[in-house]
Amino acid sequence: MITRTGLILFAIWVVILATTPLHADNYIVRTAIMISMYSVLALSWNFIGGFTGYPSFATVAFFGLGAYVGAIAQRNGVPMVVAWMLATIVVGAFAAALGSILLRLKGHYFAIGSIAVVEVCRLVISSWRSVTGGGDGLNIPLLRWSPDDVAIFFLMVMLVLMIIVFALNAFVSRHRLGFGLHCIRQNEDAADMVGINTTLYKVIAFTLSALFVGTAGAAYASWVGYIDPTDSFSILMTVKVPVMVLLGGAGTVLGPVIGAASFVVLEEIFWSNFLDWNRAILGMVIVFLIFFLPGGLLRVSFRKVRDRLKGREGVAT
């Protein structure tokens, strides 16, 4: 559920991101693209991880798969935008098929299973050399535009994706699907007994969590011009996404956006200013945020933080 205030804030945020090319250099624009891309990933993850409460680590499998489907299609002469659509469809179908098997697992077992999906995808892509180029990776035809135009174009693409996934999040949270997913998160057996088709609902949520991640992957591939199995299926990336959602507030509509933005910006600040200690500092920040803000930035209460620092436990969240 999202209020008018939330919606206005999101609109302002979109405007801020969309206008970066007007008042900042391309490095900032690139950061804005990364923020939008990670927002797409985090908002997508929210369907399965936030609403449904299934800790999926498969996000990067969809991302990498989308990147590869898009890249292979483009190399075979499919126009760029059509290649992205193709990637969306293939990844969606893959997630639906996979979901019906994988979602029989619960809790930790599901988490491990979803990590295995990433590994299997990486190995298949890396071994299927005739199609994917294996460890050599793939070069994708680059857009021969000026750097400014390329940056603006991909910023708009990622922003549009972000708005679509955001709207879907808002829609699902109001719809009976969102209600059903929430029931599944609270008690799956009970949800089943009151007549919710839990399998169907979970598969829908899982597919939604994959669809636009696939598109984002394909767009990313067109943007950077080179992909390889190690980077496209990086475990680090798949862990980042849930952290972003938790940072912002899982199961809310605006949380993933705030989480993704804060995470990317924090990362950038630490990277550019602390060459040797950036990872340690970022790690400490994450530990701090998760420990003191268990509900995410959306539920910050400074009184509670203060109480905790003093050793007194605040009222339960």
Binding site: M1, I16, T31, L254, I258, A261, V265, L298, R299
Partner: peptide, 22 residues
């Protein structure tokens, strides 16, 4: 509990934080 008065404050803080950092 998500977007009530207090939560709106938290929300503003969150968005503000991200914008300020940018």
């Amino acid at each position: 509990s998500t977007f009530g008065q207090r939560c709106n404050a938290g929300l503003l803080q969150g968005v503000g934080l991200a914008a300020a950092a940018l």
